[in-house]
């Protein structure tokens, strides 16, 4: 693959188009090994209260912060105010302006509350954050997020943790036609082919957590996702053949035995 095919977010260049979450692993060691196998450079983390009575061992003790860009999320926030508060704390803890903004609307579906999302994005951009919002696969909302100044849009492929894959590839296509900022499919990927499909559609990246952490062998799945994202990107750049209903022979018709 061409060396200059990098993912550019807010002027920063990344070689890997796979972003991974760090939740749900069996141990910090396993997280670190899966991150390594995934080849990801951007990894998401959550902001939570320190447990005062437990060991102060931290995930960050296992992760080389020179190698990875931390993308704190606002997972579990249901209002713009909660999400903004979480981002302000994340910036103080991590000294970075990158945030994955999610504002949820429902506990069962974990679908975004786009009204609150837009409200939070507006405040955070004013506060100087680089905002990467998790959103519905809705081209209108994605355009509004871009107009507010978000550095990327991250439409869901399917509900978080569902593993249902890219449920509406046509909407993802329309989003790609609608916005100029990177489009990163966030949530829904179940296996390697789902990630490849997202990339073949022309998405600039894929973000996933459960598909890797929940696999029987997370390290092997991390490598599979690494390859799938690269394969899908390369296939997109290569340009696929058109779909046709009937066959076209691959062998020459000339010189056939009579």
């Amino acid at each position: 693959m061409s060396h200059n095919d990098t993912l550019v977010i807010a002027g920063r260049h990344f070689n890997s188009r796979l972003m991974v979450g760090t939740g749900k692993y069996a141990s910090n060691e396993e997280t670190a090994r899966a991150l390594e196998a995934s080849g990801a450079e951007i990894i998401t983390v959550a902001v939570r209260r320190v447990n005062l009575d437990r060991s102060k061992e931290s995930l960050l003790d296992y992760i080389d912060l020179k190698k990875y860009t931390l993308l704190p999320n606002t997972a579990g926030c249901y209002t713009a105010d909660d999400a903004v508060r979480t981002c302000l704390l994340a910036r103080e803890a991590g000294m970075s302006d990158f945030v994955k903004l999610e504002v949820l609307g429902n506990e069962k579906t974990l679908f975004p509350d786009n009204e609150e999302l837009l409200k939070a994005a507006k405040i955070l951009i004013k506060e100087g954050f680089t905002v990467l919002p998790y959103t519905s696969d809705d081209p209108i909302v994605c355009k509004k997020l871009e107009d507010l100044g978000c550095a990327a849009v991250m439409p869901l492929g399917a509900p978080i943790g569902s593993g249902l894959g890219i449920r509406n590839p046509y909407n993802i296509k329309i989003i790609l036609d609608t916005v100029k900022v990177p489009v990163i499919v966030d949530a829904g990927v179940g296996t390697a082919s789902d990630a490849a499909i997202a990339m073949e559609l022309g998405c600039h990246g894929v973000l996933m957590n459960t598909a890797i952490a929940g696999a029987k062998n997370p390290i092997a799945m991390a490598e599979a996702m690494n390859l799938a994202v690269r394969a899908g990107r390369l296939a997109y750049l290569a340009g696929r053949i058109p779909r046709k209903l009937y066959a076209t022979a691959s062998s020459p018709l000339e010189g056939l035995l009579e």
């Binding site: 979450g21 760090t22 939740g23 939570r48 997972a75």
Partner: peptide, 10 residues
């Protein structure tokens, strides 16, 4: 007082 840190998350 609230004291927070980063934990694994998606």
């Amino acid at each position: 007082i609230e004291i927070v840190h980063f934990v694994g998350g998606g």
